[in-house]
Simulated assay, not measured.
Amino acid sequence: MNPISLSEAQALLARYVDAKDNNRPALIHEAFTPNATLTFSIDTDTISFPAKTEGAAAIAATLVTDFAKTFDRCRTYYVGDLSLAAEGATLTVPWLVLMRETAAHTLRVGRGIYRWGFAWQQDGTYRIGSLHIHIARMDVMPDAGAAMLAALQAALPYPWLPSQTLQASAAAQASADARLAFLKEFV
């Protein structure tokens, strides 16, 4: 068994974000092991998820199908440079999410940490065996026409977001629109 390479890990992370952000639940089954686990720790009361979900089908329901019933125009960004842990089977990645709560017509801006665990498969590939999502913050603000959301998303490369780019964009957006001053706390 070879340790997972950074390019293999990036491909799995790209598949995950494509599944979640583009409402493609079948991609979860390509990225995760059938018996994968998903856990959450949440430091805000503005969003909720089950503490633990087991199995790719349940993960697809939680993170894609059910998620898409409440949120749309979602873009999840991986912030900073990726580097595998010393043992080569885990990856911790800061994230930023920009999305709209459909019914409320609100902008949602969240941040946290993903902790990925990769599992070697009998076919000689890796898949995601575990995912822990820590949600440190999820801010909500009115955005009836989704203009703020569109402007924020247009200013950021997707899904790989260098920290410096996020810092510059947050400062520029906050300067252009005082309602977005809170973005400086997301860098």
Rank of each mutant, 00 (worst) to 15 (best):
L82T: 07
A86F: 11
G117M: 04
V109F: 05
G117C: 03
W120V: 09
L98V: 08
R108E: 02
T92R: 01
F118A: 04
A89M: 06
A119K: 12
E87P: 08
L96A: 08
R127D: 00
R100T: 09
A119E: 14
L107C: 05
G117H: 10
G80P: 02
G112Y: 00
G117F: 02
L82K: 07
Y126V: 14
I113Y: 03
G112S: 06
P94R: 12
G110S: 13
T102L: 10
Y77M: 07
Q122I: 05
R115C: 09
Y77C: 12
G129E: 07
Y126L: 09
V79Q: 03
A86H: 09
L96W: 10
G80C: 13
V93L: 10
A119W: 07
A85K: 11
G124F: 10
A103V: 09
G110N: 13
G88S: 10
R127A: 14
Q122L: 09
A86N: 12
L96D: 07
V93M: 07
W116M: 06
A89H: 00
Y126R: 10
Y126K: 08
H105S: 10
G129T: 13
A103Q: 13
D123K: 15
R115S: 14
Q122E: 13
L96V: 11
A103C: 02
L91G: 03
A103T: 13
W95D: 01
T106W: 01
A119S: 04
V79Y: 07
Y114L: 13
H105V: 02
R111K: 09
F118M: 09
T92F: 02
V97N: 00
L82N: 08
E101D: 05
A86G: 01
L82V: 11
W120D: 03
F118Y: 02
R108M: 11
T92M: 04
E101G: 08
W116A: 05
E87M: 09
L84P: 01
T92W: 01
L98A: 06
G124D: 10
G112C: 13
R108G: 00
G129D: 04
R115W: 03
G129M: 06
E101Y: 01
R115K: 10
Y78F: 11
I113H: 11
V93E: 05
L82C: 04
Y77T: 05
H105G: 14
A89G: 08
R127Q: 13
E101C: 13
Q121T: 14
Y114T: 14
L84Q: 12
T125Y: 06
L107H: 00
M99Y: 01
T106C: 04
V97K: 06
G80V: 04
V93I: 11
E87D: 15
M99C: 11
A86R: 13
G110A: 12
L107M: 11
S83T: 07
I128R: 00
L107Q: 05
V79P: 02
L82D: 00
P94W: 05
L91Q: 02
R111C: 07
R115Y: 15
L84G: 02
R100A: 12
Y78T: 09
V109K: 02
L82H: 03
H105P: 03
G110C: 01
D81P: 02
A104L: 10
T90G: 02
V97T: 08
G124Y: 12
G117A: 09
L84K: 12
E101I: 03
R115F: 06
P94E: 03
Q121H: 12
A86I: 07
G117K: 04
S83F: 09
S83P: 04
S83Q: 09
L96H: 03
A85P: 00
G110L: 05
T106I: 01
I113C: 11
F118Q: 00
I128Y: 01
